[in-house]
Structures are given as structure tokens and as C-alpha cells.
Design a binder for these strands. Structure first.
Lengths: 116, 116
DNA sequence: ATATTATGTCGCATTTTTACGACATAAAAA
DNA sequence: TTTTTATGTCGTAAAAATGCGACATAATAT
């Protein structure tokens, strides 16, 4: 409580952080890649392809689903999960803007205005 | 027992997840944006611009520094933090590849091969 | 020399994440 | 019907993240 902190975080910062958090575990990165590599939506045997217990994988799936990055459709006894490519495209844009601003830092990286 | 199974994933998946984790908090997103917006590297008054205690901000700075996304150079009594734009460029590429593969999912989004 | 200031370290409490087994449920097969 | 199978729910334990105050340190300023 050294200083007055008036500034809150913007909606954009929170949104980017939320998505980043969703991708902040290799299992969830792997799940997205797995779904991207299938011509047909695969079901819970996603778990069989990952070095984790089925319930743990299910938990990760739920986290991705909570952000609507993936979707699940029940098909009889199995469930078909697939990517929400539309949302992913938006998210990709957000990350791009973020990185573009970052790499375009006027300080220019390896220490032009300071010693870093 | 809860053992981190992150080692069972590919190096690429782990690297992407690591960086995603670094950006998984709005404060750290804000820090990167803040550093990107400065023509000169700013020091610890980063804390004054964020709605968090100084030590908490310092902690976030350390996390970004641990991944070498930012760097700090001591200048007398103050410290000059700035972005590692070179690394950020690499990271940007990794995220781009990831998203490109994801949005290019053959299932094509809104349910072409399944009901999602 | 003493005080001030910017930065960094430590410990602690709270919350969230991760991981998994035991159990429940509902569709399909026997 | 009974059994099998794929999926989902719940509780729990360990770990990590978050946030902050008390204290330490080192460079200036007085």
C-alpha cells in the first residue's frame, strides 16, 4: 500500500489474460492441436492420447469449453469435441495486436535507450 | 499426489504454455504494454501505474524476467526494465504458427463434420 | 554521518490449479 | 433385462499462484 493504485485493468487486458491462461498448460495446448489435426471431431479418447488421467483431461476440456474455445456435441454414447475456429480467429487477432505493439517498442530491444 | 506431468508433452507445447502462463495475468499483460509504450525504459514506478502493491508488481516483473521476456538494468538507485523484443518476435511466431494450425482445422468450425 | 529513497527479499495467508480415484448416469450391446 | 461402455460429477490432496506487509540493502541526498 505504498502508493495509490487507481488504474484498473482494461477489458482487453483481462480478455487476453483469460485466453492466455487457457493455453497456460501443455495439456490444453495439446488438446487444441489434437482437435485441429482431426478431419473429424474426436471424442473422449482424447484422454487416451495424453499422459493424464481421463478425469484430468476432462477437467482441461471443461476449461477450454468455459471460454468457448472448443465445443462438445453429444452423439449417442460418445461426445464430439471440436474447435470454435471463429472465436480462435478473433483470439488470434487479439494476440497479434498485442505482439505487434510489443515488438514495435520504441526502445527497440537490446538497449537503445537504456542498458538492457 | 499431485505431480506436474508437464514433461510428458513436447518441448513446443511446453514452451507455448510457459509463455501463455506468463501472459495469464492482466497485470503482466499490462506491464508488457506499459514497457512497449515507453520510448525510454521506465523503472519501478511501474507499480504506481498498476492497482497492486509494489511487492506484488515486483513479483510479476520477476516472472516475466524469468522467461527473459523483459530485462532489468540497474542505473544507480533506479532500475530500468525493458522488453526483449527479439525474444518477443520469436514468441509471436510460435503463437502465430499455433493459431494458424488451429484456425485451419479441417473440421472447419461450425459443425461440418460433426454437430458442433 | 545520517536520512531518504528505490529496489529487492522473506514469510505468510488465501485462493486457484492440477491430478486422480470413487462413484453416478445414460446409451448401446449382450 | 443385464451388462458393458463413454461420459460426467464429486471430493480430496498436493502444488502453485496471488497479494501484501515487515524487513533488508544500497545508492543518493542532506
Amino acid at each position: 500500500m505504498t502508493v495509490a493504485k487507481t488504474t484498473a485493468f482494461t477489458a482487453e487486458q483481462q480478455q487476453l489474460a483469460r485466453v492466455a491462461k487457457a493455453l497456460a498448460h501443455p495439456a490444453r495446448v495439446a488438446i487444441v492441436q489434437l482437435l485441429a489435426s482431426k478431419t473429424t471431431c474426436i471424442s473422449g479418447d482424447i484422454a487416451a492420447e495424453l499422459p493424464l488421467a481421463r478425469t484430468t483431461v476432462f477437467q482441461h476440456l471443461q476449461e477450454l469449453k468455459a471460454l468457448d474455445l472448443i465445443r462438445g456435441e453429444i452423439d449417442g454414447l460418445t461426445v464430439c469435441y471440436c474447435l470454435n475456429t471463429e472465436l480462435l480467429r478473433q483470439v488470434q487477432q487479439q494476440f497479434m495486436s498485442f505482439f505487434e505493439t510489443a515488438v514495435a517498442c520504441p526502445a527497440g530491444g537490446a538497449g537503445e535507450s537504456c542498458g538492457c
